[in-house]
Write a protein that binds this DNA or RNA. Structure first.
Lengths: 249, 249
DNA sequence: TGCATTGAACCTGTCTGGCATGTTATCGGT
DNA sequence: ACCGATAACATGCCAGACAGGTTCAATGCA
């Protein structure tokens, strides 16, 4: 009966129990160092076989939430509580989240542009130009620009020759592009572009990178992103849009 | 025999096998959609019971690397390959990793110092001073400074009033402090401090923050971290130390 | 009375066999 | 050649067993 329900949902008993226990660990029901119920007790508590319990515990062990000591029991580890993963709560739906991230992003992308100007290869110039051109195409056809825009910034980060730069941009992607758009947006669902000078500003940055002028690239990227923040704030004050409808670029 | 060896290392057979299979999934031995060996085949391949195999598979399932279809088999999922998690491969053991991260870190921490100088509260000044003092104590007692050093940088990032700055530091922590030290270091295991001016440099930064002088704070933090990079390179050239033995500050 | 030792109870790690349910391939019949 | 039935194969879960480790209580000795 219940096993069948789980099967219909594609969720194994072990997965269900490990989720249950994970929640208890996260909620502080078990504090670091606490001993969890024995396998035998868990079989009774959940009315399952020991196999299922062991599989559930194996999952939690692999995630570092508990350790099992033979003969002693299963113990909650230090990492089980309050250890939020960095940058996992990014959202475009909350104003403070967007502004905070934009500030962080500005710091990062200003320097990214400067390094790209200093270090770019010919192939990376080509990739940047291609991405820049693609943004222009989106503007011309009335398609959403956010993905193309992001790809341009990513191409610039690649040109820093430091893989942590594009990696960081990927990390914060979900704070830039709303979640629904990560799968590609529906036709006609394009958020309005409020930067009438988007392509021009991008072009200035790209030019500086091509010419290898790091300081100019930084200045132009700073101006571009500061413009984004200013526009964001103005549009929020007008109260006609929700935070995530605003295209930050 | 072999089970005993694993036990001596505290690693279960299930963990070992899940790691093995995870590597095979990551290395592209199994591509998305590929069917993995059956449980029965894996018991033969690894000479273990089916229980152990099931526990290993449960781990991989929980991590979204595979799905099991009853009657059909176990299949590699889309996320199993090439989808490296950003910043999950941080290490202090590889030179390129350390240098790349230090460069990225410099970008953020320079600006962090500037913002902290502009925005810090009285309570945050107190926290910064406390952390600064703690580094001094470690130096005086000959204890390891890395944790205390990190906490000072973290206190500065907190004073930016933008939670993404401390969050970034937490993100890259494992790339700054070697893994073995995350649990607290053994007495006498202190890596050598090669910055004889550590406390002095920190003090200059802290002073600028207290005085609210953002530009000076930036300059001093930049000099501090650049000094770290220069020292790192010099020590590497001397070839007397492995990369992770060098305290970057 | 206090401490050390021993044994029993409890615990995890692994193995084995079994049944329920689902999938796939093969074989036979039309 | 196509369809249906059956057998072989596969996962999900159950139950029992043994090996080796831990903990606690009881007993014996000083």
């Amino acid at each position: 009966m219940e096993a069948e329900n789980n099967h219909a949902r594609g969720t194994s008993l072990a997965a269900k129990i490990s989720t249950d226990l994970r929640r208890e660990l996260t909620d502080g029901v078990f504090k670091p160092g606490d001993r969890l119920p024995s396998e035998s007790a868990l079989t009774r508590e959940y009315s399952v076989s020991r196999t299922v319990v062991r599989e559930a515990i194996a999952i939690l062990r692999a995630d570092g939430l508990v350790e099992a000591r033979k003969g002693a029991g299963i113990f909650a580890l230090e990492t089980s509580e309050g250890k939020k993963q960095p940058f996992k709560d990014l959202t475009t739906e909350r104003i403070s989240s967007v502004i905070e991230l934009l500030e962080l992003r500005t710091v990062f992308e200003v320097e990214s542009a400067g390094l790209a100007a200093s270090r770019r290869s010919a192939a990376q110039i080509e990739a940047i130009l291609e991405a820049h051109h693609h943004v222009g195409e989106c503007l011309a056809t009335g398609s959403p620009t956010r993905d193309a825009d992001f790809e341009l910034h990513l191409a610039i980060a690649e040109a820093t020759q430091n893989r942590r730069f594009p990696e960081f941009l990927q990390l914060i992607r979900s704070g830039i592009i709303p979640r629904g758009e990560l799968q590609g947006s529906a036709p006609g669902a394009r958020p309005k572009d409020y930067n009438l000078h988007l392509q021009e500003e991008h072009g200035l940055i790209v030019d500086a990178i091509i010419e290898g002028n790091a300081e100019t690239a930084r200045e132009r990227m700073r101006a571009h992103l500061r413009g984004s923040l200013d526009r964001y704030k103005i549009l929020l004050r007008s109260r006609t849009l929700s935070p995530e409808d605003i295209n930050l670029s």
